[in-house]
């Protein structure tokens, strides 16, 4: 016993070094399975830091916006005209589609169902990002006090007449603090989303890639899709809510393996320019 103590005293630095490494490896092991709540210490640190991060993020965003504004003044008029033409085109398309929907009983029923699918939501701001080579994570400025829960869905959207028009899936909440929450984005390597192709109803899994892109494969080997087809969440797995727009098919590749066709997806959300997001309270 005395000899052991002498050894420890003599090699205190080495013992501490090894002890810390073992302890951290142990921590990594036990927290790698999703935990229910973050610890009190993490929460306090998060509360203190997230406010400062929000302040700094806003400064960066303001300068970024100013820079983009200066760059785009020349393009604004041209874009304005193009958008006006696009609105007219979409209004025309909308009239045609409404005509089709109301002439079909099945589509009419589904349309009514969709219109009633309204989730409670909270508007949030991105306060920090971890978009290095290994992770694609975000932190937002809303947490427990705003009713955010683990696994709530985060989307990018625009607001009109008190309704939100969702423009694309961002990710889901993985940890919640008092006034902050961690988000895993759908382009993160560890992210998986079950999807449905709007055009042919074929289903599969879309996963984030290391280069911050999204690819996917079908459940059924014989299924395929065309470039430009739109993907929405299928709701399978009960993590993501149904019918949230993920993005469009950029490329379809025959992989010659069991998974057959591999899809490359162009996400609806520009993750490099995320600022305001909406957290849908799924109530699960």
């Amino acid at each position: 016993m005395v000899i052991k103590l002498k050894f420890i005293r003599k090699n205190i630095k080495k013992v501490l070094f090894t002890g810390i490494i073992i302890f951290l490896l142990f921590l990594i092991g036990i927290t790698s399975n999703e935990r229910e709540n973050i610890s009190g210490t993490e929460n306090i640190a998060g509360v203190l830091l997230s406010r400062t991060q929000k302040f700094v993020y806003n400064i960066g965003q303001t300068f970024d916006n100013a820079f983009i504004s200066i760059q785009s003044i020349a393009k604004a008029r041209e874009e304005n005209n193009a958008l006006r033409n696009k609105i007219s085109e979409l209004q025309q398309e909308n009239r045609t589609l409404s005509d089709i929907v109301y002439n079909s009983q099945i589509l009419k029923a589904e349309y009514k169902l969709r219109m009633n699918l309204e989730y409670e939501y909270t508007e949030a701001q991105v306060v920090s990002k971890l978009d290095g080579n290994w992770f694609d994570r975000l932190v937002i400025d809303k947490g427990e006090k705003d009713g955010i829960k683990k696994n709530d869905i985060v989307v990018q959207a625009s607001v009109s007449d008190d309704n939100i028009v969702e423009t694309g899936l961002v990710g889901r909440v993985v940890d919640v603090g008092y006034n902050w929450a961690k988000i895993i984005t759908i382009i993160d390597e560890s992210s998986k989303v079950s999807f449905r192709v709007l055009e042919n109803n074929e289903a599969g899994i879309a996963e984030g890639n290391i280069d911050s892109t999204i690819s996917g494969y079908f459940f059924n080997n014989h299924s395929s899709a065309n470039e430009g087809d739109k993907l929405v969440t299928s709701g399978l797995g009960e993590i993501y809510l149904q019918n949230i727009y993920i993005g469009s098919v950029e490329k379809v590749e025959n992989t010659n393996d069991a998974k057959n066709f591999k899809l490359y997806v162009d996400p609806a959300v520009d993750f490099s320019k995320l600022y305001k997001v909406f957290v849908l309270k799924a109530g699960r």
Binding site: L25, L27, A45, L130, K182
Partner: peptide, 14 residues
Amino acid sequence: YDIMMIDVFGIYTL
């Protein structure tokens, strides 16, 4: 990093 950004604790600390 571990507290604020990711859900697995200890990777960045290690």
